[in-house]
Amino acid sequence: MNKAQPHLHACLECDLLVNMPDAISHRTNVHCPRCNHSIAMGHNNAKQYVLATSFTALILMVVACTFSFISFSSNEQIRTINLLQTFTELYTQEYYFVAVLVFSFILLLPTLYLTSVCLIILSTFRGFEIVPSVGLGKLMSYILPWSMAEVFLIGVLVALIKVTSMADISLEPSFWAYVIFAPLFTHIVSVIDSHRLWDWIEQAGACSHG
């Protein structure tokens, strides 16, 4: 560990060494002076804010999975689907690979990401780790590029525009839960910068080991 130079940071995109300021003011970004890569973002109350919004997002995800998603009626036939059927139907048509992808991208990975960040923040408060925080932090960095909640939302909107001309569509509670979940998830991701995240992980480790 570099105890002598704790605030020295190498830019991920151009490798330039940057001296990190001790405090970054609320909602301002630190950019790399050479390639303009955004290195860190200041937030006055990040820990509580991220914990609260992640918890909200997890509740919304539970709501999105429990109620019905969209219902569709044509020629006096009605079909109502829930969120899970967007991939179980692919599975029954034997497109296992695409089914697993859709399940992971829209549901599993965003949920894992939010659960991990909640567990890390909780261990900094409570002084013991339920799951090792370092592992959770690594997991978060691997799954982040594959979380596609907002892309799925656009997909739903496009599909709806496509179907409205053929039949009557009614939007059910779980649809609205996902409509709030997707932008909220994107917002949470933008607040968690890796600097702060690894500070929390170090705090969590320090708490639990003495």
């Binding site: 969209i70 967007t86 139907e89």
Partner: peptide, 10 residues
């Protein structure tokens, strides 16, 4: 891919 997944389900 998501559009297809939703249409197939719906």
């Amino acid at each position: 891919v998501f559009v297809v997944a939703i249409l197939v389900a719906l």
